[in-house]
Design a binder for these strands. Structure first.
Lengths: 180, 180
DNA sequence: CCGCTCATGTAACTGGTTACATGATTTA
DNA sequence: TAAATCATGTAACCAGTTACATGAGCGG
């Protein structure tokens, strides 16, 4: 257990997943990320396995060999130090990177919309509209599915729904302004 | 000019900035990122200078020595190949990473809210509310400032405003549900 | 002239991606 | 039993961060 570093987003998230899943393998955590509604979480093996070793070496999670399978496998649990680190990562206090304007690759691109010829511009907007609408519907389904289960998870999923709904409204606003 | 890779978000953004600023130094680009409303763009020198060299080596931007100063300095412009690469990066087509649910570190944390003791939970929410509100106001100001200038820039800034407004609404929703 | 900020970098480090390897388990 | 998928990794690479260096111009 070396000196406490500040956790990256992925580290904090993985620590949180191990906390919420109880004793679980690295693959369970990985799957959660792979199946996440947001494409942001890649859940690549090359990220997860070394990361969890790292957390274990720092004493934030502990592993014991998994008896059930024939193959080498370990189940992880969060230690007391791990819970403290998770809480510190969660905040409060909430740093600017957490509460400030979040990144949005679609917004980033929009700043340079005029670099596209008019025809592509229109296609950019119509395709955005269509695809964002689709992803919004998917987010809505996910939230509805988890409605009865865990309230906090449902509320977190609602965040994605509201974010996508706002994005869709925004695209409509843009289209109106640029149609003239 | 080696074979075309797909650009990273930062590369695409920098290419776009050089395109929109006309001939400009690396520092001008860097400043734009440093002064950006979103904490996502760090604009660290160690990222920008090598990145722009990279783009130059690929023939996407071209530099000529800047005559005005005594010190070594170069101004960059986008080449024809650079404009093509910029347009390809902008899309359409828009990949899932661009139109899908964007990352939000606050939402990520919310999934694990129950790992906090009740008192911290309430502080987490009240601090979120307060800080998101502040950042929303700042985003609003930025949009208002650019209102008369460039329409597209204004509309892009509006995206940040709407995203933050949605976040604020979301926090209120959470607070209502958890107060009971 | 001294110190401060501007401006242009560089070097070391590191977290995450991509691609590969491989044994175990299931399915056709 | 052959093929596909599950599950657990590993190795090379790379983009971006942190921290440092350094000269130019400017305000006192």
């Amino acid at each position: 257990m070396t000196a406490a570093r500040t956790l990256t987003e992925l580290e904090g998230c993985v620590l949180g997943l191990v906390w919420s899943r109880g004793p679980c393998t690295a693959y369970v955590v990985r799957k959660d990320l792979l199946l996440s509604a947001s494409p942001h979480w890649s859940g690549s093996a090359g990220a997860i396995y070394p990361l969890m070793e790292r957390l274990a070496r720092q004493g934030l999670i502990r592993s014991r060999p998994d008896a059930t399978g024939r193959r080498a496998s370990r189940k992880y649990v969060v230690t007391a130090a791990g819970l403290a680190a998770l809480r510190a990562w969660l905040g409060p206090p909430l740093p600017p990177g957490v509460v400030g304007i979040p990144p949005d690759p679609l917004r980033t691109r929009l700043y340079f919309l005029e670099a596209l010829p008019p025809r592509s511009r229109r296609r950019f907007l119509s395709e955005s509209e269509r695809k964002v609408r689709t992803h919004l519907a998917r987010a809505q389904e996910q939230a509805d599915r988890g409605r009865g289960e865990n309230l906090v998870t449902f509320l977190a999923d609602r965040g994605a729904v509201l974010a996508m709904a706002a994005r869709l409204e925004w695209i409509h606003e843009i289209t109106r302004h640029l149609a003239k």
